[in-house]
Design a protein around this nucleic acid. Structure first.
Lengths: 183, 183
DNA sequence: GTCCGCATGTAAGTAGTTACATGATTCA
DNA sequence: TGAATCATGTAACTACTTACATGCGGAC
């Protein structure tokens, strides 16, 4: 999702500073569909303010730069809904660099393959632990259902990787010996 | 994955024209991790040629523009392996516009929610039919395993959507009546 | 007779990333 | 003493998308 809509989405849930929006992109439920660094968030907030879709209040802080707390306006809410309605998610991409790497397992060092798989397994385990820990409500709210979707998909991916870890490593090892034999 | 590496990946499997690379991005196993239109592919092939990572031969055709058949060079294969080795897939993003939309189900028209879910269900079903149809080999090759990964993840996502289709639609309907009541 | 597939490319524009710039506080 | 967190922002750059430009052949 583009950065302006992502910011608007976070602000639709609660007011936040640019810094807090960044955290939301990394940790909360928004981490499933939003991303972006300060270099995109701050300019985006600027444009949203210009367009009247958000406003901000400055919160003075001692010993830190002042905080700008952004709030979504009614126009902002309408713009968010409009944007989400016109968006056709048919072109959602599950483009994965991991799959690209695994596709070429036979051409890469076994050690590399082992490492990327193990890292990814650890990543999924951490994600699942985190998703299990927060909001275990099971209250049927949209955020909760989205969380459950994450759990479902991550679990499936994790199980697959655990099941085929050895297979990919074997492919890399055989690929290596094939390459050696060819020399 | 960036466009140059994606092209190199396709060419590592077999020689191809720019047009055929495009098709590979849309249909084959590469559709799981690569994308890009002609506006990115052709410039990318130009740069790869300059860098000596690919070469091409012109295949004259009657009544069509000549075809440039690109082939990967040894330097190109090395560059691909190097690129894949340096790539840390820890930052793989499963950023999904669908999830973004569903997260705000309570704020959107029920009809929109119903449509995006049904379209996505149809999309997954088509994907699975396609993945089942082609390469049912089950031969344990890397492409085959990657295909199986696709089947695993799509199946999980599909089952989830079918299970919670009604829940999301209800959320949208309740959200709507809440908004009406507030007026 | 209109749209789709084949086939290549360029130009202009958009969006986002990365690096820079600044600076106090807190934890190991 | 070095790294991480909090806090905002700009400038330069990279990369990709979209629209344009051209044109034949075949299917419906």
């Amino acid at each position: 999702m583009d950065i302006k809509t992502s910011c608007l989405g976070v602000l639709a849930v609660r007011p936040a500073s640019g810094y807090e929006i960044r955290k939301a992109f990394e940790e909360g439920p928004f981490s499933h569909f939003a991303e972006g660094g300060f270099g995109s968030i701050y300019p985006a907030l600027g444009k949203l303010t210009e367009a009247g879709l958000v406003t901000f209040e400055v919160e003075a802080q001692e010993k830190r730069p002042d905080k700008k707390i952004y709030q979504i306006t009614d126009a902002g809410r309408s713009a968010l809904v409009e944007k989400l309605c016109e968006k056709e998610p048919g072109d959602d991409k599950y483009k994965s660099d991991l799959l690209f790497i695994l596709f070429f397992a036979g051409h890469l060092p076994a050690e590399k393959i082992r490492r990327v798989i193990d890292e990814r397994i650890a990543f999924y385990q951490a994600k699942l632990a985190h998703l299990g820990a927060c909001g275990v409500a099971g209250d049927g709210s949209a955020p909760d259902l989205v969380r459950e979707f994450g759990v479902t998909v991550y679990s499936a991916a994790l199980a697959f990787l655990e099941r085929h870890r050895k297979d990919f490593i074997n492919l890399a090892e055989r690929g290596k010996s094939a390459a050696d034999a060819a020399e």
